[in-house]
Amino acid sequence: MGKLRQNKYDIQELIQRDVYVKDKKVGVIVGERHHPNESRVQSLRLMVEPTVAEEFMRKPADFAPLSKELVHSIQANGSVRLSKSMRELQRRWRNTVRIDEKLYAPDEMLDRAVLDNQGLEIGIIKELLKVKRTYRALRIKTRLNIQMQYGVDDYINIPISALSKTRERLDEVVLSRGFDKVLQLPSFGQVNDDEADFESEC
């Protein structure tokens, strides 16, 4: 079959297909982000082969993003072939956020709601911030009620280390503790310091 053109295949046609770079099986497509704005959905979700994760990730993860632009074609046997090498895939996996042993691309994080572990919605992710080429914080646009209740600014930074899990169906990120406890973390103070040396990524 020919190349996968934009909008030619939807996720239902790609899901559960094996993914290959040349003769190496990389993993299986298991879904994509649930977001009403399709232009935000630039990545597929991939369940990665353990041997591939061991070889091509700094720290192995079970799930990782697969950029749609890397998908080249569907083969006669039903598998998906990628257009780039494993080194390109490795490079992209380095540019991710790790949450609960899963890797997420920047496009999978933007505009997600952030909740604390009690279900309180803090705000929406607007930017990812790096220090020395590693993501260290999320820039959050806080809800008005959060600003009033906790006396925080309309934008705050949440350390990546304070994230616990994602809720894929609801497009949410959940913190590891209550927001009042997050505010007391030393890492929260560090990422909100005026002298924090961030490299804005997106």
Rank of each mutant, 00 (worst) to 15 (best):
V131I: 14
H72P: 00
P36R: 07
R136L: 14
R94L: 13
N77P: 09
D100F: 04
K130R: 12
D154N: 07
H72A: 09
M86F: 14
Q149P: 01
L120S: 08
Q42D: 14
I99W: 12
P159S: 08
A76L: 04
R92N: 08
L175E: 07
Q147M: 13
I158V: 15
P36D: 10
L115Q: 10
L175C: 09
Q75G: 09
S83H: 02
P159V: 12
S73D: 06
L120I: 10
I122Y: 08
I125S: 12
R98C: 11
E54V: 03
D107R: 04
K126I: 04
S39V: 15
L128C: 05
K84N: 03
V48F: 02
L175S: 08
R167E: 12
L89K: 01
E69G: 01
A64P: 00
K68Q: 09
A105P: 10
N117H: 12
N157E: 09
L44C: 01
K102D: 09
Q90M: 06
R139C: 04
L175Q: 06
L82H: 05
A53P: 06
Q147I: 08
L175Y: 08
R81F: 04
E88L: 03
V80H: 01
D100L: 03
S39R: 14
S67G: 11
R169K: 12
K130E: 12
R92S: 05
A61P: 02
Q90W: 02
T96V: 01
